[in-house]
Design a binder for these strands. Structure first.
Length: 415
DNA sequence: TCTGGGGTCCTAGGACCC
DNA sequence: TCTGGGGTCCTAGGACCC
């Protein structure tokens, strides 16, 4: 196989940069990137974590995922801005369009990351560096934000390269550069090594990526089962995954929410389950998918989490079916603890046109399906709030819970 | 004191079937 | 009176990504 050339484009502090650009474009004189600022959810709604931070905020010890409480204790004058996901999708789309001018081989890996395969454009290594500079500068000039670009022969190395010094930098990590540039790094810097794996590796005396790369494969399999193969390969820069341009079939659709107050009664919990089922059902129908597995997730006020799932006899995308199964699963697992978060998820998806019911059930299912479709149509046309179930009136619970518009990009945990 | 929400994949144990 | 073993499905939970 001839050598490939892969770029990984990573937006620097995406949410914050995009918010900053948006504000400047709308006449704001302050550039959020120049002051200690962050994108964060509402503490009152119990969504209080940092989603993105500015450079000056980072210098003051603010990190992504931190609680807002902790962030404010480190930086009391931190300027906090709520997230605007619709804006982020627009920015992500604009980036996508710009990159697609260079090659159709662009994969949106997440809302703020893309891979590009520029193999076959007759570029040598100097050329691909020059092209990356052009792309980076165009993004800065035309879209107003900075990116890091990593360049290598596969996706893994390109992604690792883009993680090097930030922001607004281009790095290469070709295979021959691995010993110098990647092996000295701590093993937790490697893609797919999270906190659990990191601690486990430390326990076995593996501290750097280089040490991991030189650890006996058999031993890694003993420690980590099949995951050991992945770790060994990645540490040695081995990755054969393709840049995917077609959207992969979705495996499941789920929505969850942290409730703004501890839920302690069944009736309120059911309202949340219904509002989540509404969103899951709408999304399934939008994708023309039906699900055979329904899963309910709950987190109590001690932050412990559980889930129960059930395979139902016939695939469905009807809000009511999802809701009823969700309620059944919920009552099966809820022991009365105060609830902090609830989720509903639909899995084991199949084509939405498929049904397998008796004639009598079919007629009933058709009617429910027509009703769901009508509601979807009205909501698409006039907004989600145009049709509400009566049970939500004066309930204090939003009648639809959970987000994600139809084209919100999602990444997989594997390349 | 506080800790989001959207995903994917893997593993282990028990049930069940032949 | 004693009763195997392999394959697959189902479920719960945990790990990882951004």
């Amino acid at each position: 196989m001839s050598k490939r050339i892969i770029y990984h484009i990573d937006c620097n502090s995406a949410f914050l940069s995009w918010e900053a650009v948006h504000r400047l474009q709308h006449g704001d004189s302050l550039d959020l990137r120049t002051v200690p600022s962050a994108i964060g959810g509402s503490v009152k709604q119990r969504h209080g974590i940092i989603l993105a931070k500015s450079g000056p905020a980072k210098k003051m010890g603010i990190s992504t995922g931190q609680t807002i409480f902790e962030a404010l204790s480190k930086c009391p004058n931190l300027l906090l801005v709520p997230p605007d996901y619709a804006l982020y999708i627009q920015c992500s789309n604009a980036l996508m369009s710009l990159l697609q001018e260079y090659t159709p081989m662009v994969e949106r890996y997440s809302v703020d990351e893309c891979f590009m395969d520029v193999t076959g454009y007759g570029m040598n290594r100097e050329d691909c560096l020059e092209t990356a500079v052009v792309i980076k500068e165009r993004i800065r000039n035309e879209l107003g934000f900075t990116v890091n670009i990593g360049i290598s022969e596969n996706k893994l190395l390109a992604k690792m390269a883009s993680e090097f010094e930030k922001p607004n930098k281009i790095h290469t990590l070709f295979p021959e550069e691995i010993p110098d540039k990647m092996w000295p790094l701590p093993v937790c810097d490697m893609f797919m090594v999270g906190i659990r794996t990191c601690l486990k590796l430390y326990k076995h005396g593996i501290i750097t990526i280089g040490q991991l790369a030189h650890t006996d494969k058999e031993l890694l399999r003993v420690y980590f089962k099949s995951y050991g193969n992945v770790l060994g390969d990645y540490a040695n820069g081995i990755d054969y995954s393709e840049v995917r341009t077609d959207r992969q079939d979705i495996k499941g659709v789920g929505n969850s929410t942290t409730t703004s107050f501890d839920v302690t009664d069944y009736e309120t919990a059911k309202l949340f389950l219904l509002s989540l089922s509404e969103m899951v059902g709408m999304r399934l129908r939008m994708e023309n998918q039906k699900a055979r597995v329904i899963c309910v997730f709950l987190r109590n006020n001690q932050f412990s989490a559980w889930s129960h799932q059930h395979k139902i006899p016939a695939p469905t995308n009807a809000t009511n079916d999802i809701y009823e199964e969700a309620c059944r699963l919920f009552s099966e697992m809820w022991k009365g603890q105060p609830i902090r978060a609830l989720g509903v998820r639909a899995g084991c998806l199949s084509d939405g046109n498929f049904t397998q019911l008796s004639i009598v059930d079919q007629n009933k299912a058709d009617k429910i399906s027509e009703l769901d479709k009508s509601v979807d149509f009205i909501r698409t046309k006039f907004g989600n709030d145009s049709v509400k179930r009566g049970v939500f009136l004066h309930s204090g619970v939003s009648h639809i819970n959970g987000g994600v518009s139809d084209d919100y990009p999602m990444m997989s945990s594997l390349l």
